[in-house]
Amino acid sequence: MDLFTPIFPPEKRHKHFLYITEPGFCEPEIEVIKSWADGFIDRNGQLVEEFQTKFNSAFWEIYLFACFKELGCSVDTSHETPDFLVSSQYGDFIAEAAITSHPEGFRPEWEKDYDLLEKTSTKDILRLSAIRLEFSINKKFKKYRNLYSKLPHVKNKPFVICIAPFEQPFFFLQDSLAIVRVLYGYEEVISRKDSNGEFTIIGESFNYRVQKKPGFNINVGLFTNAKLKQVSAVIFNNRATFCKRMFEKSAIE
Rank of each mutant, 00 (worst) to 15 (best):
C73D: 15
F166W: 05
F159H: 05
C162R: 07
K112G: 01
K193E: 15
T122M: 11
E187N: 11
L85M: 07
K212L: 00
F223T: 00
L71P: 02
R245V: 08
R145P: 00
L3K: 06
D2R: 02
S250R: 07
K119G: 05
G215V: 03
V210H: 04
F8W: 13
N217Y: 15
I163D: 08
N217E: 14
N225A: 03
D83Q: 02
E29S: 12
K244N: 14
K229S: 14
S57V: 01
E31R: 11
G72L: 12
I179W: 07
F216L: 12
D2K: 00
S136D: 09
Y90D: 09
K229A: 11
E109C: 10
V231P: 05
F135E: 06
G72K: 11
F159C: 01
E111I: 01
S191H: 08
Q211F: 00
I94D: 02
V32M: 13
Q230W: 02
A37C: 09
E49S: 12
F106M: 04
W36A: 06
T120R: 12
P10G: 03
K15M: 05
P165S: 09
F171E: 13
T241G: 15
F236Y: 15
G185V: 05
C243G: 09
E49W: 04
Q46R: 14
F141A: 07
E22K: 08
N237H: 07
K157V: 01
K155L: 06
V210S: 08
T241N: 15
Q211V: 08
F51A: 11
R132I: 05
F141G: 05
N196K: 08
T100L: 09
V180E: 15
